[in-house]
């Protein structure tokens, strides 16, 4: 690890005005600092800020940025009203890591692309303009949607996929002290030719909270497919919120992990399902919409098939088709 100055924030302004890299749980940042993938000169520790509450808010919930992944997953309101989020959190990392990992840090965790963490390899995300070692390399964890010739990495978070399906908003404190809210649907960026810029956050900005809308109607499902039964990142994951009324899908929101540079949400997939009777044929047609532009890189071609199958299985569960069969 390279040397750095350590500062402790006692108010949000200390963090936004410090000209320093924020550290919360540290489970991603310290890992990358040890590998010298990230080498900040200054760290500002935000863990003493009063951002660790989950409060009722506008019919939904306001989750402070420092609420740990464990506390969020175990919260009674989340378990009852937002089970997709609880399930996504519990499918990620380990008990120890979830106790330290925070809501804000989880949203901003970096990709698990093995070339990103290997400083001997070219990587546009780590070192803009150096190239992308993943293209033509081992791409088991890489994207099939929304990738560019500059970067094919995926976003590794499970939590963010559930929040994407829920249409959460991210509350940000700007360096001027003002606050703005950004929908998670507009928060993440595709790699394009600037894969090192991953979100709409400007340098110094602090995530203060995530706001969940009122609990959605219908069933919520999160399914994660991975190389081990526990403690592994997603190859493909699907978060679904589906409301069936009188034998038809009244509303559906699907989000996907492991497929792209951001937790993926395609409104056209939701529209393909809405108003129709749930059948395997309908699910296939919606998967066609999702995967119309999917491109494999070789060793991740299987994800195109896996995404379809996982999506269909989740839809069968969420619409009750599985019980009927």
């Amino acid at each position: 690890m390279k040397p750095f100055d350590y500062l402790r924030a006692s108010a949000p302004d200390d963090a936004t005005r410090a000209d320093a890299t924020i550290i919360a749980g540290g489970t991603n940042l310290l890992d990358l600092m040890k590998l010298q993938v990230m080498s900040p000169d200054r760290l500002v520790d935000i863990t003493r800020l009063d951002l660790d509450h989950i409060e009722d808010h506008e019919g939904g919930l306001r989750i402070g940025a420092l609420v740990t992944n464990s506390d969020l997953a175990a919260d009674d309101r989340i378990r009852r009203d937002y089970p997709v989020l609880s399930r996504a959190l519990l499918a990620g990392a380990s008990g120890q890591l979830r106790n330290k990992a925070t809501t804000g840090g989880n949203l901003l965790q970096r990709t698990r692309c093995p070339y990103f963490t290997d400083t001997a390899q070219p990587c546009n995300k780590r070192e803009p303009g150096s190239g992308c070692a993943a293209i033509g390399g081992q791409t088991r964890l890489h994207a099939i949607l929304g990738a560019s010739e500059h970067c094919i990495a995926t976003h590794p978070s499970d939590m963010a996929v559930a929040m994407q399906a829920l249409g959460a908003e991210i509350e940000i404190q700007e360096t001027t002290g003002a606050t703005r809210r950004v929908s998670i649907r507009e928060f993440y960026r595709l790699p394009g030719d600037t894969p090192h810029i991953e979100t709409v956050l400007a340098p110094g900005e602090l995530i203060t909270a995530v706001i969940l809308p009122a609990p959605p109607k219908g069933r919520q499902v999160y399914r994660k497919v991975r190389d081990r039964a526990s403690y592994a990142f997603a190859l493909v994951s699907v978060a679904a919120i589906v409301d069936v009324q009188d034998g038809r899908i009244a509303a559906a929101t699907l989000a996907f992990g492991g497929l792209a540079h951001k937790p993926w949400h395609d409104p056209a997939v939701d529209r393909a399902l809405e108003g129709a009777e749930p059948t395997p044929e309908l699910f296939d047609a919606a998967a066609d919409v999702l995967l119309a532009d999917a491109v494999g890189q070789g060793s991740n071609d299987f994800k195109i098939v896996l995404a379809r199958r996982t999506m269909k299985a989740v839809l069968a569960e969420a619409t009750g088709l599985k019980e009927a069969a």
């Binding site: 350590y6 540290g26 489970t27 520790d45 330290k100």
Partner: peptide
């Protein structure tokens, strides 16, 4: 927690 991913000063 994992004490390897924690800074003592924190």
């Amino acid at each position: 927690i994992n004490s390897c991913l924690a800074l003592a000063v924190m």
